[in-house]
Nucleic acid binder design. Structure first.
Length: 481
DNA sequence: TTTTGAGTTGTTCGA
DNA sequence: GTCGAACAACTCAAA
């Protein structure tokens, strides 16, 4: 009785609400065959890292459950994407293949191959839908028709187009196929760590999946949007949205975040800076996608080409100290340990640790990008690449080269009571506020009283700030000469 | 085509 | 202790 089935190919759009491909398939009256294909090869060097795979497992598990609830169980397959889609199309007699658009260079190439595979007389209508961006990258242009390279004009142009489209409701029921389609078992993909199981901190911190995403958004709107402009900078405070991993996996759409936040503030009766700051953060994500789309080498090559000449100083020992949170600078070490433990790091601290790796240690930004890629649950090709290049000074609309964060000053300014440092660097927790961000300045008595032995229980600084700063400035001067 | 105003997130130095 | 200037020109986007 129902029309021929439509395959809905899920990618990083692991949700039911505001899912245009799914809604279109449902509206068509067709039986819906939802599919997810585990194909790490397609992503090449940018296959998800360990932390992302942990998240992916739980997000797929959640999606499986919610799709079953509305009547269409998720089909899991692994292997080559085009082959698997073709096989499922043959098994189901599908007449349509619907999916959400992606913007990573490898994902774009994959879309082209899928289109090619189903073009011609296969009888399968391939339809691509917008999903992850507020506006498509082709639609935000300068008056000359070029893509933007500076954030503020990009923001103005985007907002001048009006609010993003309103989110679609999740389908309540879906017609499923009469026939049973073979699905693999999620557990067999072995996405979770076993020996050792390092994901304890992540389980405590996160609830992956669409439901978790919506809960996170509502909590944020209720508890943190007030005062967001300032409190988002304090790492000891839960003042950020923490939506990044949910957005990366598409468990919630940026459109929905935009509209819910706007509506929440209207009810509160105040149009204001807090809302605008949050919307601007959404648009920073958008700007990163825009850059990656128009400059696909962004993850590998410096956007400003002269940075290929920067005199880097690759040092494996120092890199390791940075990765493990053993640099001797408490705010840096706290951030790196938070990352290792929870798969996430506060945004303010990301800037500090990134500046430290690049400018104090002169280690190439690509090295930090790779570490973040493997350890962050919100690892996102566009945001990660654009942000590392921003700190390095090599990106579009980047930080000026002379902006070198002082890790002591930053700690004192944004973690004044050192609650963040004490939590993540417990071996120095007993140091008093006035020296905890620079333990080497403490007197012997103060150190002894706090039970700190520098060089033993906590490292001495691996570089001297003033000397490192000068070395970085000299490096930039050499590059420009 | 030329001109003009503007550009996320900081630090240091010296008055 | 506080404050403004220097850091260095450069490129982008729009008029």
């Amino acid at each position: 009785m129902s029309a021929k089935p439509i395959i809905v190919w899920f990618r990083n759009d692991l949700r039911l609400a505001d899912h245009r491909a799914l809604s279109a398939a449902v509206a068509n009256g067709a039986a819906v065959v939802p599919v997810y294909i585990h194909d790490l090869k397609a992503a090449g060097d940018w296959a998800p890292g360990s932390a992302s795979l942990w998240w992916l497992h739980h997000s797929l598990s959640a999606l499986t459950a919610s799709l079953s609830d509305i009547g269409a169980p998720l089909v899991l397959r692994s292997g080559d994407t085009e082959d698997e889609l073709a096989a499922i199309a043959a098994e189901t007699g599908a007449t349509g293949l619907y999916f959400s658009r992606a913007y990573e260079p490898w994902a774009r190439a994959q879309e082209e191959r899928v289109r090619a595979r189903f073009s011609g007389s296969t009888g399968i209508a391939v339809k691509r839908f917008a999903s992850a961006m507020l506006r498509e990258p082709e639609d935000v242009r300068t008056k000359a028709g070029d893509p933007f390279k500076v954030y503020t004009p990009f923001w103005r142009a985007l907002t001048a187009l009006g609010p993003p489209s309103a989110p679609l409701p999740a389908p309540k029921t879906v017609t499923s196929l009469d026939k049973k389609i073979i699905s693999e078992k999620l557990a067999d993909w072995k996405l979770l760590p076993t020996k050792p199981d390092w994901a304890g901190g992540m389980r405590e911190t996160w609830q992956p999946g669409e439901q978790g995403a919506h809960a996170r958004l509502e909590t944020f709107l209720k508890t943190a949007l007030d005062g967001y402009s300032d409190r988002r900078n304090l790492p000891a405070v839960d003042g950020t949205s923490r939506l990044s991993p949910h957005l990366h996996f598409g468990e919630i759409s940026p459109h929905l975040c935009w509209h819910r936040a706007t509506a929440a503030r209207e009810k509160a009766g105040s149009g204001d800076a807090a809302l605008e700051t949050f919307l601007k953060e959404l648009v920073w994500r958008e700007f990163s996608y825009h850059l990656l789309f128009h400059w696909p080498t962004l993850p590998e090559q410096p956007f400003k080409t002269e940075f290929a000449r920067f005199p880097w100083d690759e040092d494996a020992v120092r890199r390791k100290a940075w990765q493990r949170g053993q640099t001797g600078y408490p705010i840096v070490d706290a951030g790196m340990r938070q990352l290792w433990h929870t798969g996430w790091m506060h945004n303010r601290v990301r800037m500090i640790v990134a500046s430290f790796l690049i400018k104090h240690l002169l280690i190439p930004w690509q090295s930090g990008e790779a570490w973040f890629w493997d350890t962050l649950v919100d690892a996102d090709l566009a945001s990660n690449a654009a942000s590392w290049q921003w700190v390095a000074g090599s990106g579009a609309d980047a930080a000026p080269y002379f902006r070198i964060f002082n890790p002591v000053t930053q700690g004192e300014k944004f973690d004044a009571e050192a609650a963040y440092v004490r939590h993540w660097v417990p071996e120095i927790a007993k140091l008093p506020d006035d020296v905890i961000h620079a333990p080497w300045t403490a007197s012997a008595t103060v150190l002894a009283k706090a039970g700190v032995v520098l060089g033993k229980s906590y490292p001495l600084p691996i570089v001297d700030h003033a000397a490192a700063r000068q070395r970085a400035l000299d490096g930039y001067a050499a590059m420009r000469a």
